[in-house]
Amino acid sequence: MTKIGAVILGFCSLAIFMPWVCSGLVKEEEIWSETLCQRKEKVTKLHFYNQELRQGPNKTLYIVAKSEVTDSLPSQFGMVFVLDHLITAGPEPDSKKLGRMQGTVMLSDLHEQSLVVLVNVIFTYGKYNGSTLSILGRNPYTEKVREISVVGGTGVFRMARGYVITRTHSESDDHTLGVYEYTVFVSH
């Protein structure tokens, strides 16, 4: 069989078998969407801590890009980070684990240190296990209290919207660990 014949056979197989494989998922989604308007919306308040480890072999924050002006500006404009932080029930790093905060943050203000936050909170323990929240917005992290939007979610938080109030809880003396308090109000 030629390469083209194998590719055509592969696409034909996908066309035949994908509807059969996905039909269970599609049916479940149709049932969910049909009952959407009949459901009462809930508002949930969540409270957790984000553990940002900046140095060492288990660090959870990495610089992935800089602009040509990043090092010359006090705002560090143009620096881009990826993160995979532990979220916990209490401020201590060894308190009860709730999940992970994963995503990208960028320093996006020419004049002050302010982040654009694009992160997902992935719950891996407790009653929200398997659910996520998507957070997007501006975080001027030098301010005492910041507000960021919740723009979506999955699982229990499907079609979520709301907001986050975040504060810096503590910084270690050597600046290797930052602990951030998150209070989330989410409609879903």
Score class of each variant (00 low, 15 high):
S114A: 11
Q76I: 01
R146H: 09
P140Y: 09
G126W: 13
S67A: 12
Q76R: 02
E92H: 10
T35M: 11
C12F: 15
Q76D: 04
H175N: 06
S72K: 07
D109S: 12
V64W: 08
T168K: 04
G99E: 01
S134T: 13
L36Y: 15
T166D: 04
Y141H: 05
R138Q: 09
I8K: 08
N50C: 12
D174K: 03
N50A: 11
G155E: 09
L115Q: 02
P91V: 10
L73W: 07
V21A: 14
H47W: 14
V151G: 03
V121K: 05
F48I: 10
I31M: 15
V116D: 08
P93Q: 01
E52A: 08
T60K: 04
F77C: 02
S23V: 14
V184L: 00
D71Y: 01
N50S: 12
K127G: 08
F48Q: 14
L53R: 10
S187G: 01
I122Q: 10
I63F: 04
S72I: 05
L115E: 07
T70D: 09
G152N: 06
H111P: 03
V156T: 10
G162N: 11
V156A: 09
V116G: 05
I63K: 09
R161S: 06
S67D: 06
S170L: 07
M106Y: 01
D173N: 07
S172E: 06
R167W: 00
K127Y: 13
Q113P: 11
Q102M: 04
D173P: 02
L133T: 05
T44R: 08
K27H: 15
L36G: 07
E30H: 11
E41W: 09
S131T: 11
T132S: 09
D173C: 00
E112G: 04
K127R: 13
E28M: 13
K42V: 02
R167S: 02
G56L: 13
G152Q: 03
V184P: 03
M159W: 07
F157A: 10
T104S: 12
M106G: 13
G90V: 07
L53M: 06
V117D: 09
S134D: 11
K42E: 05
N129K: 12
Y125G: 09
V105P: 00
S187F: 04
L14Q: 14
M79P: 03
I148G: 04
G178R: 04
Q102T: 10
H85S: 10
M1S: 12
I4W: 11
P140V: 10
L25S: 15
V82Q: 05
T166V: 06
L177V: 02
Q51R: 01
G153K: 09
V186G: 02
V184Q: 00
V145P: 02
M101C: 08
T2R: 15
L98H: 04
S108F: 00
Y49L: 08
V179Y: 03
K3N: 11
